[in-house]
Amino acid sequence: MSFEQFIFYVLAAIAIISGLMMITVKNPVKAALWLVLAFISTAGLWIMAQAEFLGLVLILVYVGAVMVLFLFVVMMLDINMAILKEGFTRYLPIGALAAIAIFALMYMVVGPEHFGLDKIAAPAAKPADYSNTTEIAIPLYTEHAYAFILAAVLLLVGIVAAIALTLRRRPSGTVLYQNIEKQNRTEKSERLEMVKMDAVVEQPAAEDKEEEKK
C-alpha cells in the first residue's frame, strides 16, 4: 500500500463514519458538525484526485458558508429531536434493507471490474504550473455559458420562491405606522370628544359597609 492509498483510505473512512454519525446522532448541532467533518474529508479526497480548486471551494462554500448558516438556523429553532427521531427504529430495518440492496448493486458495478485501470487509463500527471482554476473557468464561461446562465436563473427562482413562501405581509389596517406630520397637525377637535352624561352616584359596595362597622 502506497502512502497515497493510505491517505485515501483514512479520508474515506472518516467520510463514511462521519456520514453515519451525522444521521444517527441525536443532537442536531452535533449532526451538523459531523457533516462538516464529512465535507472536509471529501474535500481531501477531491484534492487527492487533483481537483484542488473544487476541494477548496467545497471547504469555503459548504463548510464556511452553508454549514455555518445551517448551524445558526438549528440553534435558533428549538427543534424537538424526540419527535424527529420517532419513526427511526421502526423504519430502520426496511431502510437498512434498501440501503444494503443498493450498496450491493453499486459494489457490483462501481468497482475495478468496470472502472479499473485497464478499462479507463489513469490520467497523465500534470506539470507543476498546471492550473486547475483556469481549466474549470474557461469551459465554464465559454462552452457551458448556457448552463451557467441557467444555473443563475435557477438560483433566482429559488430566491423568488423562498421570499414568496416566507414573506408574511400583514393585511393592511392591522399594521400601525407613525405619521409624525399628521400627529403634529392634529387639532383638539380630532382627538377630544365631549360627551354629555348623566351624573352617576357610585353606590358603596356592601363589603365596604361591613368593614366600616368593624
Binding site: 448552463a147 435557477l154 423568488v160 420562491a161
Partner: peptide, 17 residues
Amino acid sequence: FITMYLGLEIMSLAMYA
C-alpha cells in the same frame, strides 16, 4: 445532461413554491 437537469430543476422549483 446538464441543461436537461437545470431545466427540470427550474420548472420543479417554481412548482414547489
